[in-house]
Computed example of a mutant assay.
Amino acid sequence: MVGGLVGALCAAVPGFIDLLFYKGGAPPVRKIALTQMAINLTVVVLYAINLWLRTRSPTSMGPGMSTPVLLSIAGVALLSVSGWLGGQMVHVYGVGVEGRE
C-alpha cells in the first residue's frame, strides 16, 4: 500500500503538468481530466487513511467488514471509475495520441 501511495503521488506530477499545458481537444476533455484528478486524489487520501488505520491496530479489527476493508473497496471502485475516465480521454478524445486530427 505504501508503494502504491508513493507511485500515485509520483504519477500525479506529470499528470498535473499535462493538465496545465493541455490546449486542444473537445470542450469536455478538461472537465473529464479535472474529475479524474479529483477522484485520484480522493483515492490517495482514502488509502493513506486506510494504511494509517491498518498500522495503528492491525489485530483489533474484529470480524466482518472493518473500516480498512471498506476503504479498500471504495478505493478500488473509485479507481475503476478513474480508469474509465482516462480511457475516455485517450480512446474517445485522442488525448496523448499522436497523429490524430
Rank of each mutant, 00 (worst) to 15 (best):
V13N: 04
T35E: 04
L71D: 00
T67A: 15
L19Y: 08
G94S: 07
P14S: 08
G94D: 00
L78C: 04
L78V: 02
V29D: 03
G96D: 07
A74H: 01
G15Q: 04
L46R: 00
A11I: 06
S60K: 12
L51G: 06
G83S: 15
L71A: 00
A74G: 01
Q36K: 15
K23V: 12
L46P: 00
A33Q: 10
V81I: 15
L34V: 06
G3Y: 00
R100G: 03
G99I: 04
V45Q: 06
F16D: 14
V13K: 03
P27R: 10
G64Y: 11
T55N: 12
L20N: 10
A8F: 14
V13E: 09
M1G: 03
V43F: 02
S60W: 14
V81H: 09
L78F: 03
R30P: 01
H91D: 08
Y22D: 13
V45N: 04
G96A: 09
K23F: 13
V90E: 04
E101C: 13
S66Q: 07
T42M: 05
G25P: 01
L53P: 04
L51W: 07
R56N: 14
T42R: 02
L19Q: 06
T35D: 07
Q36L: 14
V69N: 12
V95M: 07
L9W: 02
V69M: 11
V2M: 13
W52R: 10
G99Q: 00
G15C: 04
F16K: 04
Q88V: 15
V76F: 15
S72E: 09
Q88Y: 11
V90M: 10
P63V: 15
S66K: 06
G94T: 02
R54D: 12
